[in-house]
Design a protein around this nucleic acid. Sequence first.
DNA 1: AGCGTTGTTGTCCAGTTGTATAACACCAGA
DNA 2: TCTGGTGTTATACAACTGGACAACAACGCT
Lengths: 221, 221
Amino acid sequence: MAEQRKAPERKSSDERRDEIVRATLRLVAVKGFAGVTLREVATEVGVVHGLIRHYFSTRDDLVAAAFDFAVTSELASDRAMLDGLDPVAALAGWLASTPEDHYRVWIDAWSEAGRTPALAAALDRHHRDCERILTAVIDRVVDAGLGSSANPAADSRLLTAVADGVAVQHHGIAAIGVTEANDIVFGVAERQLGLAPGTLARANPVPARGQWAEGAALLAR
Amino acid sequence: MAEQRKAPERKSSDERRDEIVRATLRLVAVKGFAGVTLREVATEVGVVHGLIRHYFSTRDDLVAAAFDFAVTSELASDRAMLDGLDPVAALAGWLASTPEDHYRVWIDAWSEAGRTPALAAALDRHHRDCERILTAVIDRVVDAGLGSSANPAADSRLLTAVADGVAVQHHGIAAIGVTEANDIVFGVAERQLGLAPGTLARANPVPARGQWAEGAALLAR
DNA sequence: AGCGTTGTTGTCCAGTTGTATAACACCAGA
DNA sequence: TCTGGTGTTATACAACTGGACAACAACGCT
């Protein structure tokens, strides 16, 4: 009796690899880095779990690649977003609340970084990039004479901390809503950079940071 | 041939239960809520893993009890700490950086809360209590005529967000040190409450929040 | 047309996990 | 002294995990 074998749907190496990474990232947003299994990823992609091994030699490789992809693509889309905006709008857009799916990945990375060196490294890189980007935005605001900053790098660090903390209260604990979250961050930023109260709320481009371009497609199928 | 059975070291129900909860919490601080295993907990306590089932009917019950214990005891020790200090010292003590072990538990709870309703409930309760406590401290500062606040509850929420965000940068990403972490939080608080710069750093009681009394023993054996 | 490469499948395996349960040991009260 | 409750052990089990491998099928190249 001849074995019945389903005709495989063949894809190019890069395409399939990308598919797997995106599926992994999607699952990480729901189950966490420690919670995703090779079989779940395979099911999500629609293949057999053995195939994952053909692209990633180990599970750690897979989740590391997924997080690396998240970091890289989100930063790229954010940079693209900022380029098209005037200084104040860019500042508001950057500080505005991050969408829930993305936040879930970051916070999970924070907690997992202590156990997975690869995650810690990627997280560190991402964080430094974020701080640099925000510093550049602050510089633009100052250069345009719209605000002031004694130490843009320090202010960038401060505002990054506020944004992260507010994101926790908003997404993680559900203690505050989007409007309130933005109010807090905008308020601190306006006070810190000498902007008139309400400036950032008015300048805030509607879709929040990370919902742009590839950013929106980051976790899409 | 008679079976050899080790003579069991018998303990009172409450005592053993407490032992198990503390061991669980200790492991959670290292491996995360999703990472702790009944067998690891049993080994840490020095018993057989079947015994855990005798005290907690399910694994979820165990981790929920462990987190509940963490929340309750940390808040109790924090309250005790604040009572003995003058308003400004209390504010500084509350805002000062949290020790690493404790932080690891909270951040892990943030990420796990989305999947475990019991954790989400305990986290929500803990967060509200923290906000209330800080609000009371701000009230004390204002009542003593040492600072001002248009909306103590809102300022409490803001400062809680800043403290959480700074804790992430300090413990999770290791981007900043203790001194810098405290500088940021103290700076925002002083500006927000109209205190002279440096007031909080000078008033800061050396051992940071959570290292007090039972707080220090929280994760101890 | 023939052939090596590679994307893909199906199956196997050893290890770990949470849960279950029977047997035992100690203790208090009848 | 018996007896029932309970703290404790040992063992079993089904489910699931990451990893390994041989077989197969489509493709590119000559």
